[in-house]
Measured scan of single mutants.
Amino acid sequence: KSSGQLMAEWGLDDVDYLFSEEDYHTLTNYKAFSQFLRPLIAKKNPKIPMSKMMTVLGAKWREFSANNP
């Protein structure tokens, strides 16, 4: 499932962030990516359980990696 599908299924607000060329150069591993995106997700979904946060971050990382030029 996509991150958007997961968040909709769980009734969470998705984070629409348009990644720049620079993001693809600086966010080169999962740790850097999650440190960048986790606060954005948490801000829109302050009560998100950690298990769902990790699942969403994993899905967003897969999508980000697939779109990386």
Rank of each mutant, 00 (worst) to 15 (best):
K1Y: 08
K1T: 07
K1N: 08
S2T: 12
S2W: 00
S2A: 08
S3E: 03
S3I: 06
S3H: 02
S3G: 04
G4I: 14
G4A: 15
Q5D: 09
Q5T: 13
Q5W: 02
L6G: 03
L6R: 05
M7A: 06
M7H: 01
M7G: 01
E9S: 11
E9G: 08
E9L: 13
W10D: 12
W10P: 02
W10H: 11
G11Y: 10
L12H: 06
D13K: 15
D13C: 15
D13G: 09
D14T: 01
D14P: 05
V15M: 05
V15G: 03
V15R: 00
V15D: 06
V15K: 01
D16C: 02
Y17K: 05
Y17P: 09
Y17A: 04
L18D: 15
L18P: 09
L18T: 10
F19S: 03
F19K: 01
S20I: 10
S20A: 10
S20H: 05
E21H: 08
E21A: 11
E21Q: 09
E21K: 12
E22L: 07
E22Q: 13
E22I: 08
E22C: 06
D23R: 00
D23V: 00
Y24I: 07
Y24D: 03
Y24P: 00
H25Q: 14
T26S: 08
L27W: 00
L27E: 01
L27G: 00
L27M: 08
L27F: 11
L27A: 01
L27Q: 00
T28Y: 07
T28I: 06
Y30T: 02
Y30L: 09
Y30W: 10
Y30F: 10
K31L: 10
K31Y: 08
K31D: 13
K31N: 11
A32T: 14
A32M: 10
A32K: 14
F33M: 00
F33D: 00
Q35M: 10
P39I: 01
A42S: 04
A42Y: 04
A42L: 15
N45M: 02
N45V: 01
N45K: 01
N45W: 02
P46N: 04
M50T: 14
M54D: 06
M54T: 01
V56A: 15
L57W: 01
L57R: 00
L57A: 05
L57C: 10
L57H: 00
A59S: 14
K60A: 14
W61C: 01
A66T: 05
N67G: 08
N68V: 02
N68S: 10
